[in-house]
Design a protein around this nucleic acid. Structure first.
Lengths: 149, 149
DNA sequence: GTGAGAATTAGAATTATTCTAGATAGCTAA
DNA sequence: TTAGCTATCTAGAATAATTCTAATTCTCAC
């Protein structure tokens, strides 16, 4: 019942090669698991699944491979950065901008009409209690030193 | 240099009271720190700061108080849920919907025009490399059992 | 003042993730 | 082929954020 017939598409190897990396059995199997199991698995869930095909694989390798696939833009990491939770007293609807350089997080005010347009992408039946919008990139704040967050 | 003159506004006590909770020195000081330090501090940073006013406070209390303030809707938690990172091979622009009941995460496709409208809220100088949009609430998927993520 | 429940405390426990050091494997040039 | 270099993999220890536990302290209603 091996649903994950290892996909060794040229494009897979190619995407890795473009970053100077090799296609390995571990990477192939993990990628094929992500393709077949479209339910946003965690590293641990991938680990459990991949062990049935490569029993000697280690959890560290799973983390390494997932990180590699993200770097090669073959998969995306959801719930992105695993840093400390941060708190803000700004209760107005707003988005956040995370400056990659300084690590600072800025509030970006969110006009009502944009918010409702965002909510309009939800198919019928979806009832959203909250939306979280986070940008990441470069912000105009010149001095990283005086802006920790 | 005690910038945090404890704010005991009636509304603060009131917001707590509405949830059947008390206004305590620890909660007041922590809230006032969040108000004065508008840079999205972490629990640890709040802990460091609050210790100068309440030297005997414990880290657990800081976590408890922050959680309490979030429950009373006095502050918001950014970088919300501290769960495992999840991975998906869907490279199209899409948002995520997190079903609170089942814990499942669904992809929501994101039309180009909505995406560009979202990006348009950024003030000049902000250069976003990526945007992450996450809804949370109730999704129409009836059976929580067969949809883990 | 007393007693019940709420809140706080210190420290242990948990969980996701990263680090480290050693073992393997695969390619390159002789 | 084979020696050597590097990439990759592995197991287990280490780290960091957070939660849990049990004991103590505080508050308020009576």
């Amino acid at each position: 019942m091996s649903a994950t017939s290892t996909v060794t598409t040229p494009s897979f190897a190619q995407a890795l090669a473009e970053s100077g990396l090799r296609s390995t059995p571990q990477r192939e199997v993990i990628y094929s698991i992500l393709l077949s199991e479209r339910n946003h698995p965690t590293a641990d869930e991938v680990f459990a699944r991949v062990k049935t095909e490569l029993p000697s694989i280690s959890l560290a390798t799973v983390y390494n491979c997932l990180e590699t696939l993200v770097q090669c833009k073959l998969v995306k990491a959801v719930n992105f950065e695993r840093e400390s939770t941060r708190y803000c007293p700004n209760l107005q609807p707003h988005a956040h901008f995370h400056d990659d350089q300084s690590g600072a997080t800025h509030d970006i005010s969110l006009p009502q009409e944009v918010l409702s347009q965002i909510k309009s992408i939800l198919p019928p039946g979806y009832d959203a209690a909250s939306v979280e919008i986070t940008f990441r990139g470069k912000s105009p704040c010149a001095n990283p030193a005086d802006q920790r967050n």
